[in-house]
Write a protein that binds this DNA or RNA. Structure first.
Length: 276
DNA sequence: TAGATACCTTATAG
DNA sequence: ACTATAAGGTATC
């Protein structure tokens, strides 16, 4: 959910801490959180961990996704082709549901580097401590740990107006009545609606959690960048409201794997220009 | 039921 | 140096 990068560039290690209760299909045993670090080196994936982490790595990095099949299922479209060519091999992540929910609540009107800083601050303030390789790591807080924080605590960490959203959403999950992972069993639009019951979660944030955590590869979060892209490249898909525009662009990007197409396009237009 | 407005904070542009 | 703006929106009128 929040990976740490030690350095920028080629062989950087990315580190994260996975709680067993958040590692649904990664076959982590009960017990303390697992530290996992991973990097690409000489064209191979390497990892080190406090546990046997192959399953965790496979799950978090979506290594089972069949990229050629996903690309084959997307429409012939000059922008999509260019994006897939430019960044071929890029995968989505599969973030833990609760951590994903909280970090996307924090993402409102915020840049990535600061969102990351907030998640680290939350972990250091409220998460369990794990030692690995002579270093101290912090797991992301459990719903209970986060629900126990006060709004003032969270504001002190720089969350701003998101502080009560995070506290109240954590409380909802801690109550045991609802959980973001519950959306997994629902049809896509129903799942998006379900997630908006959490405080600070509108349609865009809900789509992010669906795409980056809950395996809804058709979800296309309508953020400011994709809206600019729609205006410039797919103007007929702008239907004036979120739900209808979402349907239209999802259809245009190939339906089933529209979220993958969106991610490639997003990356391409942001990094290489092409959108005003 | 659509449309405007306030909301925390800070890096960066001008 | 300063102020204005933008940053992968949402809740509440």
């Amino acid at each position: 959910m929040y990976a740490e990068s030690e350095q920028t560039g080629g062989d950087a290690w990315y580190e994260t801490v996975v709680r067993p209760d958040e590692a649904e299909n990664a076959r982590l045993d009960e017990g303390e959180p697992a530290v996992v670090r991973v990097r690409q080196h000489d064209g191979r994936l390497e990892w080190e961990s406090t546990v046997e982490a192959a399953g965790v790595v496979r799950s978090l990095l979506r290594l089972d996704d069949d990229l050629p099949a996903i690309r084959a299922a997307t429409p012939d479209d000059p922008l999509l082709e260019a994006a897939y060519d430019r960044y071929w091999g890029m995968r989505l992540v599969r973030d833990p549901p609760f951590g994903s929910l909280i970090s996307f609540i924090c993402s409102a009107q915020m840049r990535v580097s600061r969102i990351h800083g907030m998640q680290v601050a939350l972990a250091e303030a409220f998460g369990d401590v794990v030692e690995f390789d002579g270093q101290t790591y912090h797991a992301f807080p459990t719903p209970d740990q986060l629900a126990g924080a006060s709004e003032a605590d969270l504001r002190d960490l720089g969350l701003g107006y998101r502080a009560p959203y995070v506290q109240r959403s954590a409380e909802l999950v801690a109550s045991g009545d609802v959980h973001p992972a519950g959306a997994r069993e629902m049809a896509y639009e129903r799942a998006r609606e379900y997630l908006t019951q959490f405080v600070g979660v509108g349609e865009k944030v809900a789509d992010c959690v669906l795409l980056f955590s809950l395996d809804f590869l058709e979800a296309v979060p309508l953020d400011t960048w994709i809206r600019k892209t729609i205006a410039q490249y797919y103007p007929d898909c702008d239907r004036g409201n979120y739900a209808e525009t979402s349907r239209a662009i999802r259809e245009r990007l190939g339906g089933e794997y529209a979220g993958y197409a969106q991610t490639y396009v997003f990356h391409h237009l942001r990094n290489d220009g092409g959108v005003d």
